[in-house]
Simulated scan of single mutants.
Amino acid sequence: MLRSRYALLLGLAVCTAVLAVGLVVSIHFGASRIGVMDVLRAFADHDGSRDDLIVRTIRVPRALGAALVGACLAVAGAIMQGLTRNPLADPGILGINAGAAFAVVTAVFVFGTTSLSTYALVAFVGAAVAATLVYGIGSVGRGEMGPMRLAIVGAAVAALLSSFTTAMLILSEQTLDTIRFWLAGSLLGRDLALLQQISPYVCAGLLLALALSRRITALMLGDDVATGLGQRTRLTKSLAALSVVLLAGSAVAVAGPVGFIGLVVPHAVRFVVGLDYRWILPYSAVVGGIVLLGADIVSRVALRPQEIPVGVTTALVGAPFFIYLARSRARQ
């Protein structure tokens, strides 16, 4: 485990360098073979060739989108695990991804929406409603809203919303054709215009999360301890929930409901840097981008020239890890 400030800064710099290399490798791979030097030449000497157009209009937005979505999901998962003191928490397991997906499918089913830019706004609304519903139901009844209760309520809400989503897709073949690849979690066809549209929400969510990092560390010790340290815990939780909605909504708007990044990455980061959220959040952002970039590369090359949705690849890794966490939590 890294301890000193110098070691933590050095580790973050190394992870950032790995992310940069991952971006170049992601741009390099695809259905059309383009050499690494050709990739670099597309930026240094743009001549309008076919390879330049592929790199600039298809692969660069896709690589940046993967890094952005991975960072959003990992930071959102880390915040949720800290606030709820629940190691099983992430935007997918607590129903936020399902809420955003349900809202987007409803927009397509009712209004015939096909614009990815419209998906962003609708996804935010769905994520916020799902989060409110989970926390509202979880707080009803006797006793404190414990981690396992929240996980159970989140799973139930996610299952309910997913069933409604499935019903709409069954009733409308056109809706299914429009959105089926997006529902599996995909980065295919994303452009810079979409990334520019959601970037204000992503920046706001990340900046808000980093600003709250010290407070989230205190909340992990318990509400009473945080209150004793002079914190307004209810305000902190509300602002942190807003950050999660902004980040998870942005991620779903770009790539669809990609699961398990928000679950796996914060645990891996916490093992290295400890329990201080001033380091957990920036590390989660960088490592989340690396993990999703790697998953997207595997999705493209595993069955070339066909492509596997990136959500399938992350599930293959994340599902066993979730089972391990659930079993270890049950033993405790």
Rank of each mutant, 00 (worst) to 15 (best):
L2M: 14
L10M: 13
L12H: 12
T16E: 13
L19A: 12
A20M: 13
G22M: 11
G22V: 04
G22Q: 02
L23D: 02
V25H: 07
S26M: 11
I27S: 06
G30Q: 08
R33D: 15
R41K: 11
A42C: 08
R50F: 14
D51H: 13
R56K: 13
R59S: 05
P61M: 04
A63N: 01
G65K: 00
A71Y: 03
C72A: 11
C72K: 04
L73E: 01
V75N: 01
A76G: 03
G77F: 00
A78D: 01
A78Q: 01
A78C: 02
G82W: 00
T84K: 10
P87W: 05
I93C: 09
I93M: 10
I96P: 01
N97W: 02
F102D: 05
V105R: 01
V108P: 01
S117A: 14
T118Y: 12
Y119Q: 01
V122A: 02
A123F: 02
F124D: 00
V125C: 10
L133Q: 11
G138D: 03
V140H: 11
G141K: 05
G141M: 04
G143F: 08
G143K: 10
E144D: 12
M145F: 12
M145D: 09
G146E: 08
G146K: 04
M148G: 09
A151C: 12
V153W: 01
A159T: 13
T165Q: 11
T165I: 13
T165L: 12
I170H: 15
S172A: 09
I179V: 15
F181A: 09
L183Q: 13
L183R: 09
S186V: 09
S186Y: 06
L192W: 11
L195G: 08
Q197R: 14
A204S: 12
G205M: 05
L207C: 13
A211K: 04
T217K: 07
A218L: 14
M220D: 13
D224Y: 07
A226F: 03
T227K: 14
G230K: 04
Q231T: 08
K237C: 02
A240R: 01
A241T: 07
L242I: 10
L246I: 06
L247S: 00
A253I: 09
P257I: 03
L263Q: 03
L263V: 04
V264E: 02
V264F: 05
V265N: 00
H267R: 06
F271H: 12
G274A: 08
L275R: 15
A285T: 03
L292K: 00
I297V: 15
V298G: 09
S299A: 15
S299L: 02
V301C: 06
L303K: 01
R304D: 13
G311S: 05
V312N: 03
L316W: 10
A319M: 11
F321C: 10
F322M: 14
F322E: 09
Y324S: 11
L325K: 03
R327L: 15
S328W: 05
